[in-house]
Design a protein around this nucleic acid. Structure first.
Length: 521
RNA sequence: GGCCCUAUCGUCUAGUGGCCUAGGACGUAGCCCUCUCAAGGCUAAAACUCGGGUUCGAAUCCCGAUAGGGUCACCA
């Protein structure tokens, strides 16, 4: 039997990182077993524009490289893959359940149901519906309807016995049927609810392994009740732990971003990203720019492989030391029985550590290519970037080395693309390194070295300036810092000799002269 | 509140009765390297929720407590 797994997002306009983790497990399991991964759209309750709200989700999946064999945008033999297109099919299933006496028409008014549940809560009883407005006969239906009531269809859950099922993560699970609520499966307007649609779809799409978040564990008995009533085979289940918020075990939520930002590590990572986003003109509302959403990492310039590698370890491990996995290794080594049972908190610092490591392995040319769009969007380089600009970007990327942690970090080196007469200078740095000695006394000679070094490359500059340092009996740091501030306006950056070389002699001299001009306030 | 689930360093985790003086990773601290900033190297601090059992022996098995989480919608 071919393994078939699925992920069923509802088109909300964003892709939650916890959802991605669950999707990843499904994808890995399908790929490992040579099966199919299906992307189905749970839009039973959607009034919004599905196509529009779906786009970011599909884009996210494509960016991550989680390809799907059937489903949204690609179709397949078990469609439709949109729940909103299957109402007739679902209603037929509801009818079957009704015919078999496994479901019933219920005429309770919402406020009546609510009152019962509140009473149960108060008396510390299980919240089980009394079936007081259940229509048993056709006469009951007429009577209730004469009262102006509307009917929903509810499941007639067993009131005794236990439901048993095996779960690949939890082991054998047992729950008493008596504790299961008579869930609504069809609303009074005729549309159906998630639980019913889910069961029907999993059957129609021949899903063999239902791998989903732990929060669905409690849905499982009623789904089993339905699928058995409908005569469907039971899929295998694996309920994976939820991804929880930083520093707690609460479910991760994009709405709680303000709270997460109180965590210093989280805030630091966010602020770094936000600064980049602002430079390239991205909107940074919590709905669009949020570390809980996968798009955030895409926008800032993370590597999908790094994100995937971090995510696969959120609730799964291979052994006591292996942490780095290529896609293929993940596929080969993943197994459900090594999924952890406890929920795992999102740790953006660790995610960032994976990003750093993966980034270091990216060849310079590729880094430059992928960093370039950030410069374009920031308006620092023209759109089809000329060859010499691309070459400069390559040199910067090379010189920056491990300092470039996400592609957006290229903006840290924006000063290379600024006209020399617009370069901002850090006043404090000017005070410290150029307005007073020893820097003030050196800069003239340093300028002369820059003017005369031949060839004008990093090794030559290094040699000449080291000679200068030696001749003066100076410490290297103040000298290089003086030079650095004079040509970049800042105290930090990558190697000063590389900086000079990339800038070229003319620009270096122009900048030094401009700095000298700024010394007199 | 009912039902269900979970419980090892701050965080992600290894651990399935003796290999545990509890291992790895991120983070943190210190040192080294170094033209600043990074990166890199080395070192360190850091955990079995508690209480009872079972056993020669328990992080590992059992019971209880505690804590946290999920769920109980005409949401998905």
């Amino acid at each position: 039997m071919t393994v078939r797994t699925r992920f069923a997002p509802s088109p909300t306009g964003y892709l939650h990182i916890g959802g991605v983790r669950t999707a990843l497990f499904n994808w890995l399991y399908a790929r490992k077993h040579g099966g199919q991964f299906i992307l189905r759209i749970d839009d039973t309750d959607q009034q919004r524009n599905v196509a529009e709200a779906l786009q970011p989700i599909l884009d996210g999946f494509r960016w991550l490289g989680l390809d799907w064999d059937e489903g949204a945008a690609v179709g397949g033999p078990c469609g439709p893959y949109y729940q909103s297109h299957k109402l007739d099919r679902y209603q037929e299933a509801v009818r079957q359940l009704l015919d078999k006496g496994l479901a019933y028409w219920d005429y309770a008014r919402p406020e009546e149901t609510k009152a019962e549940m509140e009473a149960a809560e108060k008396e510390k009883r299980p919240k089980i519906y009394s079936r007081r407005w259940m229509a048993v006969t056709e006469a009951d239906r007429k009577r209730f309807e004469a009262e102006g009531r509307q009917a929903a269809v509810k499941l007639k859950m067993p009131r005794e016995g236990v439901c048993r099922f095996h779960d690949h993560v939890r082991g054998d699970v047992e729950v008493a049927w008596a504790g299961e609520q008579d869930t609504v499966i069809q609303r009074s307007d005729g549309t159906v609810m998630y639980n019913l649609a889910n069961v029907v779809d999993d059957f129609d799409m021949k899903i063999t392994h239902v791998i989903r978040a732990e929060e669905h564990l409690s849905n499982t008995p009623r789904q089993i009740f339905m699928l058995e009533g409908l005569g469907y085979p039971r899929p295998e289940y694996a309920h994976v732990p939820a991804v929880s918020e930083p520093g707690s075990k609460n479910k991760l939520s994009k709405r709680k971003i303000a709270q997460y930002l109180k965590n210093p590590d989280f805030k630091k990572m966010y602020d770094h990203a936000k600064a980049l986003a602002d430079r390239v003109g991205l909107t940074t509302t919590p709905d669009s720019f949020n570390p809980v959403l996968i798009d955030f990492y895409k926008q800032v310039g993370y590597l999908p492989d790094a994100v995937m590698n971090y995510l696969v370890l959120l609730g799964w491990s291979l052994d006591d030391k292996t942490e780095d996995f290529t896609r293929q290794q993940m596929i080969d080594l993943f197994s459900l029985d090594r999924v952890v049972k406890a929920s795992a908190s999102l740790d953006v610092k660790k995610l960032f550590a994976f990003q750093e490591r993966y980034m270091q392995a990216v060849p310079v040319a590729e880094k430059a290519e992928r960093a370039l769009p950030y410069l374009v969007r920031a308006g620092l380089v023209p759109d089809p970037a000329p060859a010499e600009v691309r070459a400069t970007v390559g040199q910067i990327v090379e010189a920056a080395g491990p300092r470039l942690k996400v592609f957006g970090d290229i903006l840290d080196y924006d000063d290379f693309f600024l006209p020399d007469d617009q370069l901002p200078y850090d006043e404090k740095a000017l005070d410290k390194h150029l307005r007073k000695d020893p820097g003030a006394g050196w800069i003239g000679d340093l300028r002369a070295i820059v003017a005369s070094a031949e060839p004008f490359d990093a090794p030559t500059l290094k040699q000449r300036i080291e000679e200068f340092i030696q001749a003066r009996g100076a410490k290297p740091i103040p000298v290089t810092q003086t030079l650095r501030v004079a040509v970049t306006g800042k105290e930090v950056g990558f190697g000063v000799y590389e900086t000079l070389a990339i800038l070229g002699r003319d620009r270096c001299l122009a900048r030094i002269d401009r700095a000298l001009g700024l010394l007199v306030k």
